[in-house]
Amino acid sequence: MSIQHFRVALIPFFAAFCLPVFAHPETLVKVKDAEDQLGARVGYIELDLNSGKILESFRPEERFPMMSTFKVLLCGAVLSRVDAGQEQLGRRIHYSQNDLVEYSPVTEKHLTDGMTVRELCSAAITMSDNTAANLLLTTIGGPKELTAFLHNMGDHVTRLDRWEPELNEAIPNDERDTTMPAAMATTLRKLLTGELLTLASRQQLIDWMEADKVAGPLLRSALPAGWFIADKSGAGERGSRGIIAALGPDGKPSRIVVIYTTGSQATMDERNRQIAEIGASLIKHW
């Protein structure tokens, strides 16, 4: 067993022997301040990774656009098919120029040779490549099948209805392509620590998230040296922004954090800054 596999296998073990965790309302004060600064709703939840206990939450059962955070769930569904012998990570998928959609920095470079399922998941999570996500959605049967996968996990809230990039439209009061912070946090925890996926697939999923290259201005910008984070960000229309993450000190994750916002007129930089400040408060009061 590799060191990384050992780390993920012992996530519940280490967490069980940690000192009790206590909620700190100071972080919620910052979440509410972010709402004021952005002029928009902000949803927040913080779960203990081992027990699933909610440590703090704000608007945990209000719907927010998922945006690209759905790509972690998508690759979880792909990995479940791999575990069941219905898919192979090494299978190569070929596609054409007509398949390319807006923001496809990886797939646009491989029109000639195609990409493997493993490479597509890596591109979808680490670079948020939209064509990679659409190609992977095709392998599982489309958005409705991802929703069905989530329902089978016990998540009857999260739903995907459309493809990239239309799913980022974020129309107010439109339930399409949305989740709730509580539902997303619980589902992410199941994917990373539950028995739904094999140990190898859980490790692969967290490795992809740990290698995320496009979430630097968010929670990662607030992390002290030595902290662990595996995350996936999302951005959408109407001032929408979000991030889902597993993080913790001492090089291992111990909490799940989900943050979503929508309806702001603020710039992307300002949305990023507010999420980073929430992260800084979380870490300060850990």
Results as ranks from 00 to 15, higher is better:
residue 4 Q to F: 10
residue 211 A to R: 14
residue 84 A to S: 12
residue 80 S to T: 11
residue 265 Q to F: 14
residue 89 L to P: 07
residue 256 I to N: 01
residue 250 D to C: 12
residue 93 I to C: 06
residue 265 Q to I: 12
residue 121 C to G: 05
residue 179 T to G: 01
residue 89 L to M: 11
residue 111 L to F: 09
residue 54 I to M: 11
residue 76 G to T: 07
residue 242 G to E: 01
residue 184 M to I: 14
residue 283 I to Q: 06
residue 168 N to S: 08
residue 145 E to M: 12
residue 265 Q to C: 09
residue 173 N to W: 15
residue 73 L to S: 08
residue 179 T to V: 02
residue 97 Q to F: 15
residue 118 R to I: 09
residue 182 A to D: 10
residue 131 T to P: 03
residue 271 R to Y: 03
residue 22 F to E: 15
residue 266 A to S: 13
residue 234 G to Q: 01
residue 75 C to E: 01
residue 9 A to Q: 08
residue 224 P to C: 05
residue 252 K to W: 09
residue 79 L to Q: 03
residue 92 R to T: 11
residue 39 G to E: 15
residue 74 L to T: 06
residue 156 H to N: 14
residue 181 P to R: 00
residue 180 M to R: 12
residue 45 I to E: 05
residue 148 A to P: 07
residue 48 D to I: 04
residue 177 D to Y: 01
residue 84 A to Q: 14
residue 103 Y to I: 04
residue 272 N to E: 06
residue 188 L to T: 09
residue 250 D to M: 12
residue 4 Q to W: 08
residue 185 A to I: 03
residue 47 L to E: 06
residue 169 E to C: 13
residue 111 L to D: 07
residue 89 L to G: 06
residue 230 A to K: 00
residue 220 R to D: 03
residue 45 I to W: 01
residue 276 A to F: 12
residue 116 T to Y: 05
residue 24 H to L: 10
residue 77 A to R: 09
residue 126 T to D: 07
residue 197 L to Q: 05
residue 115 M to F: 04
residue 204 Q to I: 10
residue 9 A to D: 05
residue 155 D to P: 01
residue 49 L to D: 02
residue 131 T to I: 01
residue 91 R to L: 05
residue 138 T to G: 13
residue 175 E to Q: 14
residue 110 H to I: 05
residue 68 S to L: 00
residue 189 R to P: 02
residue 142 G to L: 01
residue 170 A to K: 06
residue 134 N to K: 04
residue 259 I to H: 00
residue 39 G to C: 10
residue 11 I to A: 11
residue 248 G to A: 03
residue 257 V to S: 03
residue 284 K to M: 10
residue 76 G to M: 05
residue 142 G to K: 04
residue 167 L to D: 03
residue 76 G to R: 00
residue 137 L to M: 11
residue 94 H to E: 11
residue 48 D to T: 05
residue 242 G to R: 00
residue 211 A to S: 13
residue 53 K to D: 09
residue 20 P to A: 05
residue 235 A to P: 00
residue 6 F to V: 11
residue 28 L to K: 09
residue 282 L to M: 14
residue 26 E to T: 13
residue 113 D to T: 14
residue 65 P to F: 03
residue 25 P to W: 10
residue 85 G to V: 06
